[in-house]
Amino acid sequence: MEFFIANTVSGLAYAMLLFLMAAGLSIIFGLMKIMNLAHGSFFILAGYVAYTFSRSGMNFWLSMVLAVIVISIFALIIEKLFISRVHGSETDQVLLTVGLVFVLGDLALWIWGGNFLSIPVPAIFDFSLDFAGMTFPAYRLFVIAMGILFAFVLWYFEAKTRVGMIVRAGVDDMEMVSALGFNVKIIFSGVFIFGAALAAFGGVLSGPILGMYPMMEWEILVNSMIVVIIGGLGSWKGAFIASMIVGFVDIFGRIYMPTFAMAFIFILMVAILMVKPTGLFGRVES
């Protein structure tokens, strides 16, 4: 039982990191119809940037804020220079964003090298909690809390704000939103930056747990895409539920049948799509 609970906490922490990554990916796809395969690069680059800041003597929190800002600005440049040119062409989007993954991966390799790097756990959470005879790393509990907090923030933003209302309408019919007088380019840029900032936040949070290493962007991207597909394209709620499913299957699969851990996730995805082809919270395009 203790073993199960301890790994449940690890699974939840991993699930929340996946959620932060997948929520942005899903919202960007839902609104902009852009499949941004470079989203994983934002995640890992944020970890590297925060690592550099923390190595220069900054504390974890300042490093995190600065890394998120740097990646958000970087995402804006990527959106304006490249992404905005491939709207409406899925092939171009895939070729462009896969190319970006390779370029950014090599850039990271050049700057930070090929070794495993990790961000130190912030001092305030560098301890363990003992409860009912079990030990829980405080930082993992903090990551879980952050994931839940951001799920609440996303819910509030989507359901209770005018911007959220415009984004929901945009997922339904962006052309009509434009015909009501809203500037589509600004909405697209805003959502792209927001999604990248979420991924960057997740990337820094994951630094003390998963670390950073070459090709990590592909691993996190594949799992995030499975989350997006299971949850339903364009739905952050779907991303939240699906990230927990994938997080648990991944963690417990690695423990009990490590050779088949990845296969379990794909089998799960296929099974869900057979029952609900649009994913758990996805909608059929009208």
């Binding site: 339904d172 019919d173 434009s178």
Partner: peptide
């Protein structure tokens, strides 16, 4: 001009097929 500029200039549209926002 883009559709948003035309809308702000004072042109309203009731589109074919209604196109109401189903998520709202």
């Amino acid at each position: 001009k883009t559709p948003n500029h035309i809308s702000k200039a004072g042109v309203g549209l009731v589109p074919q097929g209604r196109r109401v926002f189903s998520s709202l």
